[in-house]
């Protein structure tokens, strides 16, 4: 199964970078989102995967008695997911704004700083 997850990570990274290399603004955002998902999955994967043992102390116990999934990567990813939502919405709005001001979807036409160029 580890191989499958590694394949997924590879696909997510590859597609994310590919989309970011496009000149279209919307594709750029989609690329960032895919890449972010890939990074989340990578962190999750590197923390080692465990099946059927969530990091929740069962019932009346006070400490874990059996194996459990590592909670640290999970906590990291949880915040990352929420933050990435903030990032995405900001990026979308930025693209929208840029589009209305510059009137182009081509990133190559946006590399001048002067508005009147």
């Amino acid at each position: 199964m580890e191989i499958l997850i590694a394949i997924m990570i590879g696909f997510l990274y590859a597609s994310g970078i590919y989309m970011m290399l496009r000149r279209s603004l919307v594709k750029l955002i989609i690329g960032i989102i895919l890449l972010g998902n890939g990074a989340n999955l990578l962190i999750f994967f590197l923390g080692r995967i465990t099946k059927g043992a969530p990091p929740i102390i069962p019932g009346d116990a006070k400490v874990f008695t059996e194996a459990f999934a590592d909670p640290v990567p999970q906590a990291l990813i949880l915040t990352a997911i929420v933050i990435s939502f903030g990032l995405q919405s900001f990026a979308i709005v930025l693209v929208k704004r840029a589009h209305t001001v510059v009137r182009t979807d081509d990133l190559d036409e946006m590399n001048a700083t002067d508005e009147d160029s």
């Binding site: 580890e2 191989i3 997850i5 590694a6 394949i7 990570i9 590879g10 696909f11 997510l12 990274y13 590859a14 597609s15 994310g16 970078i17 590919y18 290399l21 890939g38 990578l42 994967f45 590197l46 080692r48």
Partner: peptide, 19 residues
């Protein structure tokens, strides 16, 4: 496409090596 495919392959291999 080739560049990103190679990159994806690299990340996947790296991940497996780390594991």
């Amino acid at each position: 496409g080739i560049l990103s495919a190679v990159f994806g392959l690299l990340v996947a291999t790296l991940a497996l090596q780390v594991i």
